[in-house]
Each structure stands twice: as C-alpha cells, then as structure tokens.
Amino acid sequence: MVRNRILGTLLAIALLALPPVAQALGEPFYIGIASRMLVFALAAMSLDLILGYGGMVCFGHAAFIGIGAYVVGILGHHAAEETLLLGFIPGTSSGWITWPLAMLCAGIFAFLVGAVSIRTQGLYFIMITLAFAQMAYFFFVTLKGYGGDDGLRLPQRSQFSDLISLRDKTTFYYVALGVLTAVYLLLLRVTRSRFGMVLRGAKENERRMLHIGVPTYRYRLAAFTIAGALAGLAGALMANQANFVSPAMMHWTRSGELIVMVILGGVGSLLGPAIGAVAFLSLEEVLSAYTEHWQIALGPLLLAVIYFARRGIYGALVTRRVL
C-alpha cells in the first residue's frame, strides 16, 4: 500500500514537472510526444472500462475516437468556410461546444454498436465491433466533401477562452493531463460503485447476475456507451494534437494497438492501460528510430509480454489490492 502511494506521488510529480524540465533541457519537442501519449492513455483507459472491467473485447474502439475527431474537424471546417453543415448547422471552433458534441456523437454511435454487439459473446463480439468500425472507416474514406482518405485539416485548434490557447504546447499538455486526470477519477468512481460491481460480476458470471435479477445487458450497454463517449473525447484531443483528422485514425490496426496498450499495461486497472499506452508509444518511437525493420522486433516482444507478464506492467510494478 505504502509503495503504491509513493509510486503514485512520484508519477504525479513527474507528469507535472515534465514540460518545465523538457524546456530546461532544451528538448521542448518531448512535450508534444508526451501530450500524444496522454491522449492515447485516455483512449486506452476508456477501453479498459469495457475490456478490463466488462470483459468486452472491443476491436473497434478506434472508430469512436475517429468520430470524436471528425466532429471537431467537420465543425471547424464549416466555421472556417462559413458554410452550413447539412444546410442548417453552423460550424464552430469553440471547444465548449465541439468537445461535448464529440462525446455525444461517439456515445450515440457506441450505443448503437453496443445495442447490437452486446447480444453476442467472445469472438463474435470481437468481430462484430470490428465490423462496425470497418463500416465507419469506409464511410469516412468515401466522404469526399471532408477530404475522404486524404483527411481534413483543422483550420484552427479548438477555442476555449483567451487564457487557454491549445496552440501552445505546454498549455495543450496540461489540458490533456487535466482531462486524463478527470477521466481517471471519474472512472475510478464508476468502477468502485455498484455499477462497476455489476459490470465485473457480469464478466465473472453473467448467469448468476441474471439469476439475482440484474439486467446485465443494460449495464453493459451503459458502460459501452460511456467508454465510446470518452473515446470520442480522446478523439477531440487527438484532432487538436495532430491538427488533422483522417480515416487512418480508425483503421483496424489502430484498434488492435489500443488493445495491445491495455494488455501491455495491465487489464482492469485503469492506470495500467495508461502506462501501457506510454510504454507502447515509447517502444514504437525507440524501435523505429533504430531500424526500419522495427516491426520484426515488436511482434515477438508483444508475444513475450503476453506470455510471460500476464498482469502487464502495472501488475509487475504495483502490489494488487485484493478485490
């Protein structure tokens, strides 16, 4: 327990201190990399809610991210062109509007996907979520009005107030960190609530939950929708981080990578998947700088981690509280 607390404090200090330290070292570039890691951490954390706690292996999570990103991109596009979306909706770059809207749209899509998918289990569930993600992917690839496969550039980053400019790297970093922390605290509450218990119960033994009269389908669907909405939020951040949205964000390999991040970090621990995201992106960064053939090392490395470290990095670092 004490060890966990020390680790947590160290982690918080390291995260807060990163921008000034990077500036001081003359390597401000790392602030950008770190921001990207935080955004992926957010996405991985949202996936962990359904994958780790709900036992729902969603192989289409990147689609929710993409939809969130496209909401920001499309509204920003209309704002810059001063045209109307569908002929009656004015565009906007205000983050106060677009970010919640990104969550809403991704959430609605997740609700629809979940409503169909949660009836299935195991490999069927994996595949049907993939199928929906593929549909979304092809939809945006052929959406010529918004760049299709070429993607869409954000005319400007989301506006909040004059005090917060996302153009500034350090500000963006702290915004991403703030959002990540808020989502972490929220998910911590959710998973420890009755809702979270039911979710875990349904994962362990769905029949028992049904017998004691818990409508697991509804709980699962709610969790799936929340996870989708949070992924949409990650998408909004991602669009701002890259200043660009494109269907490549929702390619199935991206969904696969997100699952890898969750497993690598440690399933069902919220912080674990966040760490997994950071570890995975660092690995990619380091290996790809070292050799063009980096994937030949990444593949077996993944295999080894899954084989030998079943509880992921988090499991290796932290003593687990008994549930």
Partner: peptide
C-alpha cells in the same frame, strides 16, 4: 484476448 494479441504480434513479425 491473449490469443488475438499474440497472433497479432505474429502478423507484424511475418510481414516484416
């Protein structure tokens, strides 16, 4: 899930 991931790793390996 473990199987999916392990064999996902193999895909990367074989392609490369």
């Amino acid at each position: 899930l473990d199987q999916v991931l392990a064999t996902f790793g193999l895909i990367l390996f074989f392609n490369e």
